[in-house]
């Protein structure tokens, strides 16, 4: 057992855990910050990504003791930090992920959004390839990444301006009209 003093989302928190516990375990099971997810527990999937001194780090491969004396930011800290800086609502990354359909099951997304946050804080003019590189350590099984990349581009537009991406669903819907001769639509109010 080892006592730990961690700085998480701006709070100094004292806790204790077995000395072999990872930062992910301490965040989730000692501090109750369950937003950071465990997908593989061996550094393959990126779901546990948190920011340590602003850099994305795999918390499942980081001993909790090694995070002492550093600033740890988890997904729970994003919205409060945005508000503390005078922002409205959630962090633009979180909001864009929601608006762009990037959150399907949502399990990989805390890590994904923190990787994106680190990128956009550092680089205000990333290319699409920069965004792909920055997120390449975060596996998503639901989306095929398309709407995730659109969300990061959208968040960038929200923060620095420019043209938002045009997703395929904005323009490509076609309407063939109803199939023939089956049922009459129910019309009007009143029933």
């Amino acid at each position: 057992m080892r006592s730990l003093r961690l700085n998480v989302n701006g709070d100094t928190l004292d806790t204790a855990a077995p000395s072999h516990w990872t930062l992910l375990e301490v965040l989730r099971y000692k501090l109750g910050l369950t937003g950071s997810k465990q997908g593989c527990d061996k550094g393959d999937c990126g779901a546990c990504t948190v920011l340590v001194n602003g850099k994305p780090v795999l918390s499942c491969l980081t001993l909790a003791a090694n995070a002492e004396g550093k600033d740890v930011q988890t997904i729970e800290g994003l919205m409060p930090a945005h508000r503390a800086n005078g922002g409205q609502g959630a962090d633009p990354i979180q909001d864009a992920f929601d608006r762009c359909g990037a959150l399907q099951c949502g399990f990989c997304q805390p890590g994904m959004m923190l990787s994106a946050r680190a990128l956009l804080t550092e680089n205000k003019a990333p290319t699409k390839r920069d965004i792909q590189d920055a997120l390449s350590g975060n596996l998503c099984r639901c989306t095929g990444y398309t709407q995730i990349l659109q969300a990061v581009e959208t968040a960038l537009v929200d923060e620095v301006g420019g043209d938002a991406p045009t997703p395929c669903w904005a323009s490509c819907a076609t309407n063939l009209g109803p199939a023939k001769g089956k049922t009459e639509p129910i019309q009007g109010g009143g029933v």
Binding site: Q132, D133, C172, A179, K182
Partner: peptide, 25 residues
């Protein structure tokens, strides 16, 4: 998840989705 190789943002193809709506009765 490393050895069972799954695609990342980099090796997933560019996907263009088209929605066709044959309104079902």
């Amino acid at each position: 998840l490393l050895d069972y190789r799954m695609a990342t943002t980099i090796d997933t193809p560019d996907i263009e989705a088209y929605i066709v709506e044959s309104i079902d009765p």
